[in-house]
Amino acid sequence: MKPIKRMTQTAMALALMASGAAAEGDLVIYHWFEYIPQDLLDKFTAETGINVTMDTYDSNESMLAALKAGGMGTYDVAVPGDYMVKIMAGEGLLDTIADGELANKGNIAPEWADPSFDPGRKHSIPYQWGSTSFSVDSDVYSGDINTTDILFNPPAELAGKINMLDAQGEVLATAALHLGIPQCSTDREQLKALNDLLQASKDNWVSFNSDTAKEVLVSGDAAAGMIWDGFSAKAREEKASITYAFPTQGYVVWMDNVVLLNDAPNRDSAIKFMDFLLEPENIAAVSNFARYADGLTGTAEFLDPALATLPEANPHDGAGPGVFVEACDEATQAVYDQIWTNLKK
């Protein structure tokens, strides 16, 4: 049985190699895809000696699902959006950061120091903020794009060529803005209207994709698509005709936050990482990479000057209000979940 014995020995050696990576100074991040420059992680490792491992997700909801399906206790920090911070806190998934634990907490800009989704910043620190709207390839359609009609009642040039984000919260919130109804409505007529609107619009949409939201626009697979502002700015760098819209009906704004997870295997590393991201120079590196705004004071000198005049970050005068996605209660959410399933059936 020599060959098998040899195989077993090699296998065991490889297994030891694979598990040998678990040293003491570790940090496991659960993060959005394409949202942090590798250089910055390398810098963190160089400064602290902590090894960083990162997994990525493509929607707030899938992150929550993965954490609840056995992910807790394996990750140290995650980067949920505003409403998801509130949901996660409510679910008891977040650890509390004690006063004084974060040396750089004072760097948080006053307007983001006490947000409604995490009063007093007990569990989170600001990461980036921006908006979710849609972009249109102006080579394909040159009319007025600053209206949600582009998505829900598109002109002939765009019909059937629209990519939607595969994110329930943002799609349904944008649809609510189009109809002018509240986000967590309990009014039956409004909910029916929302359901009908999505059913009627579906034929105009070619795909639901978050990760490829930029790629489909650049490659021309879609002529219009829901997208985040910074992602659209990156798309414009690759294809100049991609124009980001600020609809008059309003648009979704969001803030992503670094949160400290309960049962974090490396809590100390997590705190160090949060402090690291609270240094203006470091968070500015994220903004320069991802093309979104930060939530700290004192970052101006480190930011790419082009960011200040980015058309994707500066709404025109006629733009509607920016609204956060709201977290509904369980009974209301059940109806919205049903509407989403109806859409994708």
């Binding site: 491992t53 997994d55 394996t74």
Partner: peptide, 19 residues
């Protein structure tokens, strides 16, 4: 799979999802 443990297919999937 758990945190940070990828195999080639899952790593490739993570990359190709973005194109």
């Amino acid at each position: 799979k758990g945190a940070g443990v990828e195999t080639l297919p899952t790593a490739i999937f993570g990359s190709v999802k973005q194109g």
